[in-house]
Design a binder for these strands. Sequence first.
DNA 1: CTAACATTTGAATATCTGTTCAAATGTTTT
DNA 2: AAAACATTTGAACAGATATTCAAATGTTAG
Lengths: 95, 95
Amino acid sequence: MAQLADLFHLLGDPTRLRIVLACVAAPVAVSAIAERLQLSTSLVSHHLRLLRAARIVKSERQGKQVFYSAADAHISGVLGDMLDHIAEPSNGIDA
Amino acid sequence: MAQLADLFHLLGDPTRLRIVLACVAAPVAVSAIAERLQLSTSLVSHHLRLLRAARIVKSERQGKQVFYSAADAHISGVLGDMLDHIAEPSNGIDA
DNA sequence: CTAACATTTGAATATCTGTTCAAATGTTTT
DNA sequence: AAAACATTTGAACAGATATTCAAATGTTAG
């Protein structure tokens, strides 16, 4: 239960969510994520550490660089369901 | 994007997540949720307000009581995927 | 070994947020 | 109308956390 809440909490920060989306499709290096998202490498690394600890992403070293990617398929499933929820015609408009 | 992060953020609090799970199956009154989860009605109401604003739950008044339930099916889909992620054999054990 | 590059780490801070308590609002009953 | 019940709301406080900056670690090239 605490574990479940932790996972949602990690995806609940806009910056961290952008980082996840930036490397969910294919492995990307820290510096590349930072540049694409216009963030400091320090900040990206801090967030990636939390994401890796929760097994949302996994890391793989190649030379000087470290590549991050989605840990498993469930992550993209969760993101998809949430996007479906937002896309619901009833949601997004106030009742 | 901000909307997507908001949804995850709301599910990221343990208390709020318990409240969602308490009324995801069937409509439950505020006082019933509070009693079942051993929380003050004030706290439950505060959280339900945020959850309703994000369309995670919906409310329906019946006499003095207000019943809350899941807003749509995507919510349980998201919860299911997250639980699958936790259940992954590779996750939950440190590498 | 030194220099340059890539990432990580730690501390400090400013902001946000979950919780509590008290009071207010709305609903039904007598 | 008043009393009793259910929920909501607002302000205030304590604890958590995202971000920044500086320094440290690890890796490759000269």
